[in-house]
Each structure stands twice: as C-alpha cells, then as structure tokens.
C-alpha cells in the first residue's frame, strides 16, 4: 500500500476529488484501529492521505465573536491556548497522554465520531459547527448534525474536515467530568460537559452533553429549554427529579469491556443532578 503526501490543501482536495482516500492527520486512532500484527503497517481500508503537516489545516484564531480551530490542530496546542474555552481545554487535558495529544488532532477526534470521543460533549454544548471542504464546495454543519452514529458522520469521501468554530459562551457555571478507566491514558466510561448561566437568579442558559452513553453524544435541547428561564428557586427536588428522569430516556448505554450500562447511566444522571444542584442558591 502506498498513499499520498500532498503539499497543500488544494492538492489534498484535488486528490480527494479523483479517488477515495483515508485522510490521516495525527493517526493516533487510525493506527490502532487498523493495526494488524507486530511490526506490520496497519491495513487501511483505502489509500492514506497524509494531511497532518499542511499548514492551512492548523491554527487557532478568534474571528469576530467566534473561535476557529483548524482541523489538524494538535490537541496539545488547543489544551494550551488561552483562546479556547476551559470546558474544551479540560476535556482535552484528560485525553490520552501527552505523547498522544502531541499527535492527535481535534479533526481526527471529530471525524472518528466515536461515542466516547472526548472532545465531542464539549463541542456539542458549545454548539460547534464543522466546516467541510471539497474541491468545489464548502459546507457548514452543526456538530450534532454532522455526527450520525458510532463512527458515522456526514463527511463525503471527497471532503476534508477543514475547521471547527463556535461562539465563546458567557456562562456562570461549568462542569466537565470524565469518568475513565484510570486517571491518565484512559478511555471514557462516560463523560459529561455542562454549561449554564444564571443572572439575578434566572437561568438564562443551560446546556449539557453526555459522552459514551448512547451511539452518539447526547444533547437534548428540548429538556434544556425546560430548565432555561426558570428561576433558581424553582429548582425543587421534584423538578430536578423530572429533568433527571427525562434525560434517563435518552441515555442508553451498553455493557462493554470498560463498564456496565447500569453504571454509565446511573453515574451520568448523578452528575447531571449534581450540576443542577450547583445552580441552586446555597
């Protein structure tokens, strides 16, 4: 198997317009997924297109009221960037290990579209959009519309994920919790990212995303709406129970080699409850 190392974004898009490739930025997920046996190269399903080095695909900037992160930006750069909201930085700082964050990219984590992808719950609650480029087209989708299933998304074979962008929220409360198999270099049993803002006792923003508890990350705007515009004094036990129960309908985890469905669901809902309780006045 060979592949292509394009010099520029245009060359990469040109190549993609001609035949199917598997784009590789950091390679940290793909090298493991297609691993075969000791000392053999992995067996990719199509020719690899190496894009990690393309300068146009790397960088973090603030554009108007948005933060724009190019797809092949290293996780370690995002982790250290003061432009990036802390909820995403926290999530990234708990991903894998330093040596992997120095190779892995945010675009890789998004396109991988794993239910346990750790950047996804923060990106869901940030209402992030992804920009896809092909030779002749540019598309922009919300991340929750982009990801359609475990390992599945809307990227067409001729497209590259170009960038991810989002507005910086002005929130007063924030929670990120990864419950992993251990404290470093761990895969998530589940994760929760939540933002909220309450001003003068009124909850004017409430968003929560869950990872590794369903085929795709879970964010339910209809339930969020119920919490929004409430006064914190209305966060009664009954109300909180009702919200927790409603999320319970959406959280449908599995048993696997890392945890159990029961644990994932119970703990996800406990963390939700803990976050709602944080909003209550002391």
């Amino acid at each position: 198997m060979e592949g292509l190392i394009p010099e520029s974004l245009d060359e990469a898009l040109e190549a993609l317009s001609e035949r199917k490739f598997i784009p590789i930025a950091g390679g940290t997920d793909l090298m493991v997924r297609y691993k075969r046996w000791k000392n053999l190269p992995p067996s990719f399903p199509s020719l690899p297109l190496f894009i990690g080095h393309i300068a146009e695909l790397s960088g973090i900037e603030k554009k108007d009221d948005e933060i724009v992160i190019k797809a092949a930006t290293l996780l370690s750069e995002i982790e250290q960037s003061p432009l990036v909201p802390s909820i995403l930085r926290k999530a990234i700082s708990q991903m894998a290990a330093p040596g992997i964050r120095n190779m892995g990219t945010i675009g890789g984590n998004i396109v991988n579209s794993s239910p346990a992808g750790d950047t996804l719950p923060p990106l869901y609650v940030l209402d992030a959009k992804v920009v896809l480029l092909s030779k002749n087209e540019r598309r922009c989708l919300f991340i929750y519309d982009f990801i359609t299933g475990p390992g599945k998304n809307q990227r067409r074979d001729d497209e590259l994920l170009y960038e991810v962008r989002f507005k910086v929220p002005k929130h007063t409360h924030e929670m990120y919790r990864k419950v992993g198999t251990r404290k470093a270099n761990a895969l998530s049993k589940l994760s929760v990212a939540a933002l909220a803002s309450s001003r003068d006792g009124k909850i004017d923003d409430f968003r929560i995303g869950f990872g590794a508890v369903a085929p795709t990350p879970v964010r339910v705007k209809s339930i969020e709406e119920k919490v929004k515009s409430r006064h914190v004094s209305e966060l009664s036990d009954d109300f909180i129970n009702e919200i927790v129960n409603e999320y319970g309908e959406w959280i449908k985890p599995i048993d696997d080699q890392r945890s159990t469905a029961l644990y994932r669901k119970t703990v996800a809902l406990r963390l939700l409850r803990a976050f709602l309780l944080q909003l209550k006045p002391v």
Partner: peptide, 23 residues
C-alpha cells in the same frame, strides 16, 4: 479481566489496564 463467552473481554493493553504515574 472478565471472561465471557469463551474469551476475555479485555484483550489488549488498552482495555486491560495497569496503574499509571497518576494512579
């Protein structure tokens, strides 16, 4: 390490984990 349906469920070093320096 769990054994289920004739095989271990944890069969790589990613799934069978040992403590890191942070643990």
């Amino acid at each position: 390490m769990e054994f289920e349906n004739g095989r271990f469920k944890q069969r790589t070093i990613t799934d069978y984990i040992i403590p890191t320096a942070m643990d």
